[in-house]
Simulated assay, not measured.
Amino acid sequence: MSRAQGANRSFFPFGNPFRMISPKGTKPSSQLLSVLHAFEATLEERLKKLIPNSKDEILSLSWMTLAMQALCESHNDIKTLMTELELPVHDWDEKWIDLYLDISVKLLDICNAFSSELSRLSQGHLFLQCVLHNLGSSTSEQYVRACSSLDGWKQHIGSGNPRIEKCGSILNDLLGSLDLPKVKKSTKGKVLMQAMYGVKVLSVFVCSVFAVAFSGTTKNMSALDVSEIYSWAPTFKRLQDLVNEEIRVRFSSERFTVLNELESVDSSVKELYPIIQVVVDPVEMQSFTKIVAELGRSTEKLSQGLDLLTKEVDNFFQVVLTGRDALLSNLRSVATDIHRNSRCNGDGQIVN
């Protein structure tokens, strides 16, 4: 997505499209502005909740779960906003519909990629369970089996995921979709597009962070330059700067992974592996027992974190899918009404 790994990307490949609700056209009513401001205030509160108290919380599975929850809630808010605006589908500009459908299918694709990676990481838990089971015995044969399981875990976790590797092109497409479509006549349409823009920014940011965490490279890291005309822009900038800086620090330290829980497991594995390659000396048993216990705790924490994040990614998939299905259903309903009307004669009688 970037020309060089970790480089900032231009947010506007086709120039700055930003226009606040245009002063040249019909201005929104105070009621419409109130609805928009409430939407953006809620969005800003969600951004604030993603700003961690400590940098150590960044790229933890718990933080990623909160980020995915924020996406689910914000996309649900868009559906609620459509209801509040009382903007029926037949009043939607065709380009708005195309934009919504295009973004939704890309989000579904990227959700599938994330689910695939979470499933792959969860499968690694089986290797760790075998390790812990075999270390419950002090026989040399069990240690050999434990070593084999550790080798299997390292090989499994270190293998790539082709679906994650494809996230870069999807994110590039999502980045291009941030360009706001022009809205000339509909004040409600302007409100909807501005609200959708905020949710699109959050979506690109969160998905980019996930792609970085899962791919082990900063090439998918985004640097979105949001105009200060948006009330939530300063909060977003603070969040993005904090997260991106921590990502750069972690990659510069050449860590095994940038994911906290996975790094914790790997740390215990590195301590344990050389010990169980030989028969454990009784003098070392105390530290050995401590390391095994720590591996057990970090393994359980990783497993629980992956389960919770998987659930939220699945929830987001359903939110996007139901929104897309609802729009398509409404479009079919409108098409049916048009077809019925076209079969009527001038007196309103149905032509058989």
Rank of each mutant, 00 (worst) to 15 (best):
V278T: 13
K270L: 11
P17K: 07
P28G: 10
R248K: 13
M221K: 07
S149C: 15
K237A: 11
L61V: 11
Q240E: 15
S22A: 06
A326C: 04
D77H: 13
L36A: 06
R324G: 07
M285W: 07
F210G: 03
S169R: 12
H90W: 08
E261N: 11
F18K: 03
Q286K: 14
N8G: 03
P234W: 03
G296N: 10
Q304S: 14
P17T: 08
I276C: 02
G348F: 06
W92F: 15
W153H: 08
E141H: 02
D93W: 00
S10G: 04
V183S: 09
E254T: 03
I170R: 09
L202R: 02
S62T: 14
V131Y: 00
E57P: 00
V131H: 03
H37P: 02
D91Y: 07
P274F: 05
E94W: 01
R343H: 10
S169Y: 11
K188G: 09
S149K: 03
N315W: 05
L175D: 02
L295M: 09
C111L: 03
L126F: 10
L295I: 04
V265C: 05
L328G: 03
T65Q: 07
F205T: 00
Q277A: 08
S222D: 04
S303V: 06
K154P: 00
R340T: 09
S159Y: 01
M82P: 00
E86L: 10
T187I: 12
N244L: 09
S2D: 14
V183N: 06
Q155C: 09
T42N: 14
T218K: 12
Q5L: 06
R297L: 12
L180M: 13
C111I: 04
Q5A: 09
G189W: 01
T83R: 15
K79P: 00
E294S: 15
G6Q: 10
V35F: 03
N244H: 09
T235G: 12
M196D: 11
L121S: 15
P274T: 04
L178R: 15
E165Q: 06
L295F: 01
G136D: 13
G25T: 00
V269W: 04
E312W: 03
F14A: 08
L87G: 03
Y197M: 03
E73A: 13
V283L: 15
A293W: 00
I276W: 05
V206C: 04
R3E: 14
Q69T: 08
C130L: 11
S30G: 09
L36Q: 11
I103F: 02
Q240M: 06
H125P: 00
S30C: 03
S137L: 08
S62I: 09
S159D: 12
F11H: 05
S119E: 14
K237T: 15
F18H: 06
C147G: 04
L101E: 15
D241M: 04
